[in-house]
Structures are given as structure tokens and as C-alpha cells.
Design a protein around this nucleic acid. Sequence first.
DNA 1: GTCTATATTGTGATAGAC
DNA 2: GTCTATCACAATATAGAC
Lengths: 208, 208
Amino acid sequence: MVSELIMTVTDRNTEEIILEAACTIFFQKGFAGARMQEIADSAGINKALLHYYYRSKDQLFEAVFNRALISFLPTIKIALEAEMPLTQKIAKFVENYVDVLIANPHIPAFVIHELNTDPNRVVLKLKSHGVDPRIILRQVDEAIAAGEIRAINGEHFLINLLSLCIFPFVARPVAQGILQKSNEEYTLFLQQRKSEILEFVMQSIKAS
Amino acid sequence: MVSELIMTVTDRNTEEIILEAACTIFFQKGFAGARMQEIADSAGINKALLHYYYRSKDQLFEAVFNRALISFLPTIKIALEAEMPLTQKIAKFVENYVDVLIANPHIPAFVIHELNTDPNRVVLKLKSHGVDPRIILRQVDEAIAAGEIRAINGEHFLINLLSLCIFPFVARPVAQGILQKSNEEYTLFLQQRKSEILEFVMQSIKAS
DNA sequence: GTCTATATTGTGATAGAC
DNA sequence: GTCTATCACAATATAGAC
């Protein structure tokens, strides 16, 4: 029984090591560009073990994709559903979300690319995780009615907010090239965006 | 000589048909996900002909990537370098750029993904096409100095502008899912963005 | 559980007839 | 220029020893 326990622990570790290596490779190269050999090398183990634990490339990818979503959805969910005034909620969302993006800079481009190439691969797991955008849309309308902010279109505003937060990460090579920044300079630039986005957004919605 | 002329014309047509089919497939699936067989099928010809005209998958991809850049850079260049006041230039840029995006909705995600996976593949052809972002950055600073707009960070402003224009195309599946829109509804939504972005941006920079 | 060796299929590329 | 047939290799997946 002791040996069973030890083996189980060992299993978990290897399984986790593989998954992390798979994340690194899949996030960077996507499903089609990733190679099982490369993942095995990155995990410091053998190709056959990948199949032992995850059966096929498809199933390994599925696990990676799930982890990618799980890294982000809770943050979004918490920020969107919190009980606070709209402007405060926006501030909290931008701050938390950009922090998560800095911690996981490759995930957005990965998810977006996989959804673009094969929209059927993951049949919108957003809903299954219970993120409901209507909450924030309703709150925007309420804030307009209460005169807290000027009249805007809630849907466009929501997409604007997401665009400002996510795009600089998704299009990092392009943006970095345009601004002619080094890696360090661009990382700093991303840090600054939390306050810059907030100022930009607040200015654009404040009641006149 | 007549036959030579005719053959030349025929060549050009086949070459062009292949390139267009290759664009369709590469834009959607990326370099790693695209299959030469699929491109041949899409072009209604044979796999061998692809190699006859473009030698290798790499070279065919190169041609596709070039076409993708050429579709966009002139519009950006013209808009950025035009001789007009900043606010007017911004308006023109948003309008023209979103129109080009609507006409070529898959290109941004394609370019971004390829630059993300292999930053070396195309060694920043932006510069080779002569797009210089410093023009607009300088103009922003001048407008601030002249009191036309409130004090903002030019670099963040430029990235904000690009984010608002491009992101809804790059992340279409995600955004469409969040807003729960049909294809027709989302296409309409993209059309509306021209005025929405402008209003949003102008409000955020206008002198107080 | 982990490895080596191998089977099997997929895919880019070429040869050669027409 | 265009096709069919085929090569050569890459990549996923499995078999079987330890």
C-alpha cells in the first residue's frame, strides 16, 4: 500500500511535468506546429510516455487547452460578477486581467489561433465555465440610466475594453516592432498599460 | 510568338489561381496547419503543379505572406503620412483601416500567428515597406503641445488605436461567442465599429 | 512506469509520360 | 504545363522488454 501511494505520487508528477512541457510547446507553436518529440524532449522523457499518459496528441492538446482556459476564466468571472460600482469594477478588471496576461503572455494568441483554425475543436467552453457577459452589459446600461457615465454602446464598450487589454499581448511582435522596443522595454510598456488603459477608458465614458 | 504570348498568359493565370487558393488555406490554417494537397484541391489542380510554380511549401508561403502584408501596408502608410490635422488623420485611419480589415478579415490573425511562432521567418518586412510610426508619434506630441488634445502617451495611444481596430477581427470567434451574435449580426457589429471607435477615441483625447 | 525498437500513416517533393 | 505514380522522410502511435 505504501508502494501504491508512492507510485501514485510519482504518476502525478510525471503527468504534470508532461502537461507543463506540452503547454510550453503548444502555446508557442499551436496544435499543428507542435511535435510530440519536442514535447518529450522538453519534459526530459520519452515519446512513448506521452502516449502512455495522454493516449494521443489530440487528448494531450485537449488537456492543454483546458488548462489555458482555466488560467483566465476565474479572473474574468470574479471581476465581472463582483458587487461594486461600474467604474470600480472596470478598474479592478483591467488591473487583474493585465496581471494575469503578464503572467501568461502566450495563452491569448494560442486560444485565439486554435479557435480560428478549428472553431469546432472546443465548442465554446466559455459557457460551461459560467461566464455571463450580460451582467456587465446590464450594468453599463444601468450606469447610463443613472447618469454615472455618458451614453455608450455596452457591447462596443466591452469589446473595446478587451481589445485594449489583450491585443498588446497577442500582437506583441508587431507592436514591439512598431515601437522599436527591446524585450525589457516592451515588458515595462505592458506594465504601464494598466494605468494607461484605465485613464483612456475612464476619460472616454465619463459623464459630460 | 503568338503561342508564347498565350502560354505566358496561361502561366500567369494558373500561378495566380494557385496563389489565391494558397492564401485561402494559409490564412485560415497557418503554415504548419496547411497541406499542399488541400491547396491543390482548392485550386482545382494537381499537387505537382504547386511545386512546378513555387518549388516548395516555404516559397509558396513566402508569396502568400508578402501578399498579406501588401494588402495592408499601403493603407496604413497613406493614412499615417497624409498631410492633415491629427484628429482628421485619426478619423481617416480608422475608417480606411477597418474597411480593409472587413475586406480581408483573416489576414491579421494569420500574420500575428506566424510572427508569434517564428519571428525569424519574416525579418520585419514592415520597415522594408517604409512604414514609419514616428511620424504619428511626433504628430501626437505636437498636438499636445498645441493644446489640441489633452496630454497623453503617444505610444500607448497608437497601440490603443490599433487594438480597437484589429482585435475584433483577430478574436472574432471569442468576441462573437461572448456577444452571442450570429455571423450576420457580428458583421454588422464590425461595420458599426468605425463610428464607435472614433467616438470612443475622440472622447478620450479631447482637451478638457 | 519507463525505455528501445518498430509499425504505420501522412506529407513534401521529384521523376517521367503526355 | 499538366498529369500519375512514386520516393523519402517526418511524425504519430504501438509492441514488448525491463
